[in-house]
């Protein structure tokens, strides 16, 4: 009962005004397990949200080739082609 009342209350609260956020490109949704989406978070893992798309594309290519040493990113970057990274990078750039 209590739960049903909460549900009803929420229906009133959820205003249709708040916009839906665009779906991230395939393969981009779980980067946030390591890269915080919270700009204020204290973490040694570099920020990638809101960065320029070119920087992301270049970093991923360098990780993949091994030119840029990494702990995990080389192994992750090998799971994506350049063509797959470009839309991810473009999307990341819009996520400030």
């Amino acid at each position: 009962m209590r739960a049903a009342i909460v549900v009803a209350a929420l229906a009133l609260l959820s205003s249709p005004a708040s916009a839906a956020s665009p779906e991230p490109p395939n393969g981009a949704a779980a980067c946030s397990a390591c890269h915080s989406t919270n700009a204020a978070a204290q973490t040694p893992v570099p920020k990638i949200y809101g960065r320029s798309a070119d920087e992301i594309v270049a970093a991923m290519a360098a990780f993949r080739s091994g030119q840029r040493p990494s702990t995990v990113m080389g192994r992750i970057a090998k799971g994506y082609t350049d063509d797959e990274i470009r839309p991810i990078a473009a999307w990341l750039a819009t996520q400030k």
């Binding site: 397990a33 390591c34 702990t71 192994r75 992750i76 090998k78 799971g79």
Partner: peptide, 29 residues
């Protein structure tokens, strides 16, 4: 061709970085 485990011959610094990143992963997720 993707993924895999940490290198077998990694340096102590590399292992230490992964310990730090492990904790960072937990805080972030």
């Amino acid at each position: 061709g993707s993924g895999g485990v940490s290198p077998a011959d990694a340096s102590p610094d590399f292992r230490k970085s992964e310990a730090i990143y492990a904790e960072a992963w937990f805080r972030t997720i």
